[in-house]
Design a protein around this nucleic acid. Structure first.
Length: 488
RNA sequence: GGCGCUAUCGUCUAAUGGUUAGGACGGAGCCCUCUCAAGGCUCAAAUACGGGUUCGACUCCCGUUAGCGCCGCCA
């Protein structure tokens, strides 16, 4: 059974790219009946924060993603140290006593550094003596140089890869403070946890050659590798909080009212395709369709803008998932957003409102603006001229409202009855239905764009409807007299 | 600079030597219609460039260009 892992370092909030890496690992595990491991890679004590770790768990919980085993690298340092020690004893690593930062001075900006001169060649006696004397050192892997060879592996996404040892630097295994580096800790854990498939970002593609050297040195079997194309910003740069702000954090999507399943659907489609033109996919659909062959090799742009922080496709997918959700579940999802907005909502009423708004919201939060008039006692102030229909005037609006008030006071508040009565009244008045309906709509909703009128009236009930129409008549009358007083 | 990776509509992608280069988002338009949506239909929109190989190239090879990644005692 495959064993895969997601290994975030808690140095920032859960990033959209990290979330995608988790999802691809998870999909593979769930598809194959394998094991999903969450490993917190917290060996960089200076940069780790508790908030960051909390954000990772918070994000994963929101996404409704689970895992089967959980580890923390900081609790496994002894294993890392012992593994490094074993490599050292085999003569495949050496102590480098070059003081930290010393290389910075002579480093001619990004030249191909391979190792610090003099340190590889230190005799065992000399090395032991200096170490015993307490001189700090970093333990480096002794990459084969005398006899060059090609390190090879087959990536499940990028295909055959090879690199000459002549182009691989003597990377560090242990820092001078005794803590393992990422490479050491990661490989030691992957070996110990029997990780069978390493699925991670493409930024690790060239690191993989180093990791293979470690696997070989330890005598461990090589796992399968699958590197994922990176998520990038519209300008081609990598996503970063500093440059791109909160759009890279998954909690931003949660707070904006994305459905977790829609969000996962969206990030899966970035760099992966089921190849059959499907796009709106349930979690089970994704599990069933996932394969490494479907993963693309080019980086994918998250198409956000300054004025529109969410990728339009993410919005569309969210709307699709909202429309596909059973009414009861959608009501549950909407509930916290409406409560947070200060609306007085009860589940019964919300359940009735859901069918009226579900096609009109792209995010859960949209409901706050779209459904306000269902829950607010008092309508927000609106411009009385909104009551005036197309190709009509204030007098027409006033007449429509007064007639409507009359008719509605004696009509049953059902969709059919309301529609029949109001259409008939428009006919009697000799106005178009739209001219009749708009003033009523604005009177009860406070704006021109709203859900269909009759369902809305039925939902609101006679009392509220008549009250709001009465208020509209007052507003309009006041407006008319003010208007005519000003311009006699 | 060295090494590695990548390149199809604006964006996400399909087409594993033979298609009028397909789908989706977004855009434009039409239909439906009590407004707004939703839905349906139509249109515009791409193989980075240059060489090969081949009867035939988005697809294979070489080069150019561009982008990204790694080259830390970060991960």
């Amino acid at each position: 059974m495959p064993r895969v892992r997601f290994a975030p370092s808690p140095t920032g909030f859960l990033h959209i790219g990290s979330a995608r890496t988790f999802v691809f690992n998870w999909l593979y595990a769930r598809r194959t009946g394998g094991t999903m491991i969450l490993r917190i890679d917290d060996t960089d004590v200076d940069r780790n924060t508790a908030e960051s770790e909390a954000s990772i768990f918070e994000g994963l919980r929101w996404l409704e993603l689970d895992w089967d085993e959980e580890y923390r690298q900081s609790e496994r340092l002894e294993l890392h140290r012992q593994t490094a020690e074993a490599i050292f004893r085999k003569g495949l690593a050496y102590r480098d006593f070059t003081p930290a930062g010393a290389a910075d001075d002579e480093k001619p900006r990004g030249e191909g550094w391979l190792f610090n001169p003099g340190m590889r060649e230190l005799t065992a006696e000399e090395s032991d003596r200096r170490a015993a004397a307490g001189e700090p050192f970093v333990l480096r892997f002794k990459v084969p140089r005398e006899t060059l060879r090609e390190i090879r592996f087959r990536d499940a996404v990028y295909g055959e890869q090879s690199k000459s040892t002549a182009d691989i630097e003597d990377f560090a295994l242990l820092r001078s403070n005794g803590l393992p580096t990422y490479h050491m800790a990661s490989c030691a854990d992957d070996i110990d946890l029997r990780v069978s498939h390493i699925i991670r970002g493409q930024d690790h593609l060239t690191n993989t050659f180093k990791h293979i050297l470690i696997f070989e040195a330890v005598g461990a079997a090589q796992p399968e590798f699958a590197h994922l194309p990176l998520l990038i910003a519209p300008d081609g740069s990598k996503l970063s909080k500093r440059r791109h702000g909160p759009v890279v954090s998954v909690t931003t999507y949660r707070d904006a009212g994305f459905l977790p399943h829609a969000f996962v659907n969206f990030i899966c489609l970035l760099g992966w395709s089921p190849k059959d033109n499907r796009e709106v996919m349930s979690r089970q659909d994704l599990i069933d369709a996932f394969s490494f062959e479907g993963i693309n090799r080019a980086n994918a742009v998250v198409n956000f803008r300054e004025d529109d922080p969410f990728d339009p496709k993410a919005m569309w997918l969210n709307a699709q998932h909202i429309m596909a959700l059973p009414a009861g579940e959608l009501a549950d999802r909407l509930f916290p957003f409406l409560c947070e907005a200060g609306y007085k909502v009860d589940r019964e009423k919300l359940l009735a409102v859901v069918p009226l708004i579900r096609e009109r919201i792209k995010t859960l939060r949209d409901a706050v603006a779209v459904a306000d008039f269902f829950f607010l006692e008092q309508l927000a102030p609106y411009d009385p001229t909104e009551l005036i229909p197309q190709k009509g005037d204030a007098a027409m609006a006033l007449a429509a409202l007064e007639h409507a008030r009359e008719v509605l006071s004696q009509t049953a508040f059902t969709h059919e009855e309301l529609e029949a009565a109001l259409r008939a009244e428009a006919g009697r008045m000799g106005v178009k239905t739209g001219q009749m309906f708009q003033p009523i709509r604005v009177a009860v909703c406070g704006r021109k764009t709203a859900p269909p009128l009759f369902e809305t009236l039925a939902m609101l009930g006679r009392e509220t409807t008549l009250e709001r129409i009465g208020q509209a008549i007052q507003k309009l009358s006041a407006h008319m007299s003010a208007h005519s007083a000003q311009k006699p």
